[in-house]
Write a protein that binds this DNA or RNA. Structure first.
Length: 504
DNA sequence: CGTGTTTGACCTGCGC
DNA sequence: GCGCAGGTCAAACACG
C-alpha cells in the first residue's frame, strides 16, 4: 500500500515525465548501480531521477525505516507546490515566467539535491550492509562446518547432536563434504580416516563455500579441493560413478533450481560469468540446450543449463545446479542466494515430499494462495529434485494485482518501488488512480516481463527472503531477512515459499 | 596469443 | 544386449 508521501511522489513524477517508461534495467549489473549513483550525484534527467527514487524506495524498505535515512522518507517533494496546470502540457519556460513558480522550482531543486545526497548515503550504507552480510555468511559457514565436523567425530556412537533429516538435507545441500560424509558415512566406513584428514586439511579452503549439490560421498583429498582438473572432468567417469552410485541412497543429494522467465536474450544476466561447454539437442524441443559452467573461480562447481521452452520460445528456462565455492560480487549474490535458498528449501522440505510443498495445508511453508500451485513446480520425474520458479504466469499476476485493496503491494513489498505504476502511466497520469488501475497493471506487467533481469532479480530477492525464513540453517538469503518484515501478510503474492513466486 | 564457442565424439544410465 | 537420451569432453575454430 502506497504511503501518502509516495502517492505524492507518484503524482509528481507523472508531471515531470508523463511519458516515462521503464527501460531495460540490469538489476545485477554493477554498472547499473554505478550509473544510478552517478545519476543521483547530478541533476539528472527525469528518467534517471525515477531510478534514483526507485532505488531510494528500495533502500528505505531495507532500512526498515529505522535508519538515519528515515527522515528522508519525506522525500516529500512538496508536490502541492506544483501548479496544477503544469501537467497540462505547459512548457516549463512558461512556468518560469511566474515568480512564485521560480521559488517553487528552486525549492524543488534544493530538495532534489538533498534527495540525491541522501541516495548516495543510502547506497553506501547498502554496500556496507552487503559486505557485512558476505562476511557474516562466511563466518556462519565456517562455524557450521566446524560444528558438523565435531558432530561427525563425536556423534558416531549416538544420535545426540545429529540434526533432523530435514535439517540434514538442507545442510547436505548447502554444506560441503562434512555433511555429505555424515549423510552417507556408513557406506564409506572404509575410508573414513582419509576423509577426516582431508576434511580438516581443506576445511579452510571450503570455508567460503556453499558447496555444490553434486555431493560426492566418496571424496578424496583432491576432490575435496575441487581441483580444476577433476572438476573439469579429467576423470568424468569417476565423477559420474560417484555421483550416481549414491543417488539411490540419497535421492536429494543433487538439487536443481530452474528459473523460467521471458527473455529474448540467449541468457539471463545473473551476475556471474559463465563459459559454455556444451550444447545438445534435447528430445522434444527444437531449441538446443546449452550447458554453462561458472568461470568466476577455478573449479567452481556451479553449472547451468539454458534452454528455450518448446511451447513458448520467448520463455527462457535456466536451470542452476550447485553452489559457488568462491565469494560472489553483490550483483551475483542475488541469484546465488536464489538457487541456494530454493534448493535448500527443496531439500529441507523434501521430508514432507512435494505433496506438502504443493499443498498449502498442513503446515506447509507455502502461503495458502490459490495461485500457488500454478507458480511452483517440482519435478518428480527428473533424475534430481528440481524446483522451478515460474516467472511467466501472466494471468495470475494480473489477477493478483487487480485486487482493489492492494493494487501495487505485491510489487512493492520486496523493496520494489511502490510507486512503480506511476512510472508507467504516462499520458494517463491525469486520470483518477482507480479507473486506470487495470491499464497500469498491464503496462507494468508488460514492462517487467520484458526484462529478464528484472524478473530474475525479483525472483531472487523473494526467494532469498523465503529461503531465509524457510530454512533453519540460514546459510543463505540472510541478507534479505532484513526486508522480511516488509512482507504484507494479506497479499496473495506473499507466499511462504520461494517456490510460489510468479510474475508477468 | 589468450579466451571463449562450436561441435562431433564419448560415456553413462535407463528402458525395452 | 541394444538403442536412446542426457551430459560432458576436447579439438577445432573464431574473435579481439
Amino acid at each position: 500500500m502506497a504511503r501518502p508521501h509516495e502517492m505524492q511522489l507518484l503524482r509528481f513524477e507523472d508531471r515531470i515525465e508523463p511519458t516515462c517508461t521503464i527501460t531495460e534495467v540490469d538489476f545485477f549489473s554493477q554498472d547499473h548501480r554505478r550509473a544510478v549513483a552517478e545519476a543521483g550525484a547530478s541533476p539528472a534527467s527525469p528518467k534517471d531521477h525515477h531510478r534514483v527514487e526507485e532505488e531510494e524506495e528500495e533502500e528505505e524498505e531495507e532500512e526498515k525505516e529505522d535508519s538515519p535515512a528515515h527522515g528522508l522518507t519525506g522525500v516529500n517533494i512538496e508536490l502541492n507546490l506544483v501548479p496544477s496546470n503544469a501537467q497540462a502540457g505547459q512548457s516549463v519556460i512558461a512556468e518560469n515566467e511566474k515568480p512564485e513558480n521560480k521559488v517553487q522550482i528552486l525549492t524543488l531543486q534544493r530538495e532534489l539535491s538533498q534527495v540525491n545526497e541522501e541516495n548516495r548515503r543510502l547506497r553506501s550504507m547498502l554496500d556496507q550492509l552487503t559486505k557485512s552480510y558476505t562476511a557474516l555468511h562466511t563466518q556462519l559457514l565456517q562455524v557450521m562446518q566446524q560444528r558438523e565436523v565435531h558432530e561427525i567425530r563425536g556423534g558416531q556412537d549416538g544420535k545426540s547432536g545429529v540434526p533432523s533429516r530435514g535439517e540434514l538435507l538442507a545442510h547436505q545441500f548447502m554444506e560441503p563434504a562434512p555433511t555429505r560424509l555424515l549423510n552417507t558415512g556408513e557406506r564409506r566406513d572404509d575410508d573414513d580416516g582419509e576423509h577426516s584428514s582431508s576434511r580438516n586439511k581443506s576445511s579452510s579452503d571450503r570455508a567460503v563455500v556453499p558447496f555444490p549439490q553434486r555431493h560426492l560421498p566418496h571424496v578424496d583429498a583432491s576432490s575435496e579441493h575441487m581441483s580444476p582438473s577433476l572438476e573439469e572432468g579429467k576423470s568424468p567417469r569417476l565423477m559420474q560413478e560417484r555421483s550416481t552410485d549414491t543417488a539411490s541412497e540419497t535421492p536429494c543429494r543433487r538439487a536443481r533450481v530452474s528459473v523460467r522467465a521471458r527473455s529474448d536474450a540467449p541468457m539471463i544476466n545473473d551476475g556471474c560469468q559463465w563459459r559454455k561447454y556444451g550444447q545438445k539437442m534435447a528430445k522434444g524441443n527444437p531449441c538446443p540446450r546449452a550447458y554453462y559452467r561458472c568461470t568466476m573461480a577455478i573449479g567452481c562447481p556451479v553449472r547451468k543449463q539454458v534452454q528455450r521452452c518448446a511451447e513458448d520460445k520467448t520463455i527462457l528456462v535456466t536451470t542452476y545446479e550447485g553452489n559457488h565455492n568462491h565469494p560472489l560480487p553483490p550483483a551475483a549474490t542475488v541469484m546465488a542466494n536464489t538457487t541456494s535458498s530454493a534448493a535448500a528449501m527443496l531439500l529441507s522440505g523434501s521430508t514432507t515430499s512435494e505433496d506438502s510443498l504443493m499443498a498449502p495445508a498442513a503446515g506447509s511453508f507455502l502461503h495458502p494462495s490459490p495461485y500457488a500451485s500454478t507458480m511452483a513446480a517440482l519435478s518428480a520425474s527428473a533424475p534430481f529434485p528440481t524446483i522451478t520458479l515460474d516467472l511467466t504466469q501472466t494471468a495470475n499476476q494480473l489477477q493478483l494485482l487487480q485486487r482493489p485493496q492492494h493494487p501495487v503491494v505485491p510489487l512493492s513489498m520486496y523493496g520494489l518501488p511502490q510507486k512503480l505504476p506511476g512510472l508507467m502511466v504516462g499520458p494517463q497520469a491525469s486520470l483518477p488512480f482507480r479507473p486506470q488501475q487495470q491499464s497500469m497493471v498491464e503496462t507494468v506487467t508488460a514492462a517487467i516481463t520484458t526484462d529478464p533481469n528484472f524478473t530474475a532479480a525479483l525472483a531472487a530477492a523473494i526467494t532469498s527472503v523465503m529461503g531465509a525464513a524457510g530454512t533453519t540453517n540460514g546459510a543463505s538469503g540472510s541478507n534479505a531477512a532484513s526486508i522480511g518484515p516488509a512482507i504484507v501478510p494479506e497479499s496473495p503474492q506473499c507466499p511462504k515459499s520461494c517456490t510460489t513466486f510468479s510474475i508477468n
